[in-house]
Amino acid sequence: MLKKLLLGAIALSLTNCLVLNPLGATIDREKGSVAAGRITDAAIQTDLVNSTLLAGRASISILSLLAGDIANIESDKYYVKADVDKCVDEITGFKGFVLGSLITNIISCQDLKSDGYVTGDPFPSL
């Protein structure tokens, strides 16, 4: 009886991951459109602060509006929330203010990979 219960629990947890990860329904995943929006917002915020401190007036570059595309975020895929948080923190942090949002985006956000069993790693996209 205990063996059946244990096997049932393992099967349930595996099917839970197989279903919920690709759908983005787990807590630690974030849809690409949301991740791209957060990265773009961080780049705009960094540009506004930098331009205000350096030039005395607020302005943003067109590249800040394309920050999600520069980070190669695909809106229909899902990404690990902790990786996106790290990217956003680096853009809005000290590195972002010293190097600028574009260079920080290129350095820090290029390693974001899609996550899930159907839509990305560890298996190829369908």
Rank of each mutant, 00 (worst) to 15 (best):
T46A: 08
L53E: 08
P22Q: 04
G24N: 13
V34D: 14
S114Q: 14
L2Y: 09
I10V: 15
V34Q: 13
R57T: 13
I106W: 06
A58Y: 09
T104F: 06
D47E: 14
A25N: 07
I70M: 09
S75Y: 04
G32Q: 09
D28N: 12
A71Q: 07
V80L: 07
D89H: 04
D47Y: 14
D83L: 02
L65Q: 14
L48V: 10
S114Y: 10
S13C: 12
G68Q: 09
N21A: 11
A58H: 06
T52W: 12
V98R: 04
V84H: 03
G96C: 04
D76E: 10
K95H: 08
K3P: 00
F94E: 05
D89C: 00
G93V: 06
F97L: 15
V19R: 09
L7T: 01
I44K: 11
I107P: 01
I10D: 10
C17M: 15
L65M: 15
G32I: 05
I27Y: 14
L99D: 11
E30A: 03
G96Q: 01
D47I: 08
A82H: 05
N72F: 11
T40K: 15
L126F: 14
D41R: 14
L65A: 10
G68C: 12
L102D: 03
K81W: 02
L126Q: 07
E90Q: 14
L5M: 06
D111C: 01
A82G: 01
Y79Q: 01
I107V: 13
S108H: 10
L12R: 00
G120S: 15
L20K: 11
I60D: 00
L112H: 06
A67W: 15
A35I: 00
D89Q: 13
L63H: 11
D41Y: 12
T92G: 03
C109I: 11
T92Q: 10
L20T: 10
A43Y: 13
I27F: 13
L54K: 14
V80Y: 06
A67V: 11
K77E: 08
L20R: 11
R29Y: 14
L5R: 04
L65D: 05
L23A: 13
K77D: 03
I73L: 10
D41V: 02
L20D: 05
D89Y: 05
D76C: 01
D41A: 15
F94H: 07
T104C: 06
